[in-house]
Amino acid sequence: MLLATPIRLIEKIGFESIYITRLTGSMIIFLVHCLGNIFILPIRFTAVLRQIYFIGARSLLVIIVTGMFTGMVLALLAYYNLKQYGNMELIGAATALGLIQELGPVLAALMVIGRAGSAMTAELGIMRNSEQIDALECMGIDPYRFLITPKFIATIFSLPLLTCVFDVVGICGGYLVAVINNDVPSGAFIQGMITNVDWADLRLGLVKPLTFSVIIVWICSYKGFYVHQNRSGVFGAEGVSLVTTNAVVMSSVSVLALDYVVGLIML
C-alpha cells in the first residue's frame, strides 16, 4: 500500500512520455506530409488564393492598426529614454530596429494566430466532426492536399509580407510621434535609421516570419484535423472549442520560444 503512490507516479510519467512521443511522431509525420505536398503539382491555385485572401488580405487592417501603435509607443519610449543623453538621432534607429528584429515578426505572428490560426483549427475541427473530411476521403480526394496544403502555402507566403507591412507602418507611426509630436529633426530620425539598420537585421526580420509561419500553420491545422483524437476525449462542439484554445496557446508559446532560438542562432 505504501508503494502505491510512487508506483502510480512512475506510471504517470511513463504514460506522459508515451503520449508525448506519440504526439511528436504523429505531428512530424503530418508536417512532412504537408510540406512534401507543397511541391506536388498542380498547385490548387484557386484554393491558395482563397487562403491568401483570408490569412493575408483580411489581416491587413489589424496588422496596420497594431503596427501603427507599436511604432508609436516604441518612438515614445525611445524619446523619453534617449532625451537624457541628447542622442536624438538614435530614436529612428531604436524604433526601426525594435520593429524589424523583434516586434514586427512576433506581433504579426500573434495577430495571424488570433485571426487566422484559430479559424483554421475551428474550420478543420468542424469539418472533421461533420464527416466532411471523411466525405473527401470517400470521394477519392486527398484531404491533405485539398484542405491543408493551400493553408501551408498561403501562410508561408502571407506572414513575411504582413511582417513587412507591420514594420513599415510601425516606422511611420514612430516618425509621427518623434518628428511631429516631439520635434525630433526629421533628417536625424531617417538618417539614424538608415545608418543603423543593416542587411543582417533585415535577414533576421525575414527568417523569423518564415519559421513562425510554418509553426503556426502546422500546429493549428494539426489540432483541427485531428480533433477526434484529442487527449481529453471530448468531441462535438466542446472538442472543437478545446482544440482551438489549445492551438492558439500552443502556437503562441511556440512562436515566442522559437523567436529566442532563431535570435540565438542568427545573432
Binding site: M127, S130, Q132, D134, M139, G140, I141
Partner: peptide, 29 residues
C-alpha cells in the same frame, strides 16, 4: 483512392462543404 471512384457515400449529416454552393458540392468529384 482508385477503388473509391466506384463507391458513392452519403453521410448521415450530409457532410456538405458549407463554403460551397449545392452545385459546387455536387461537381467536386
Amino acid at each position: 483512392y482508385e477503388m473509391r471512384r466506384n463507391m458513392g457515400v452519403a453521410f448521415q449529416g450530409g457532410a456538405l462543404f458549407s463554403s460551397m454552393t449545392v452545385a459546387e458540392n455536387i461537381q467536386l468529384p
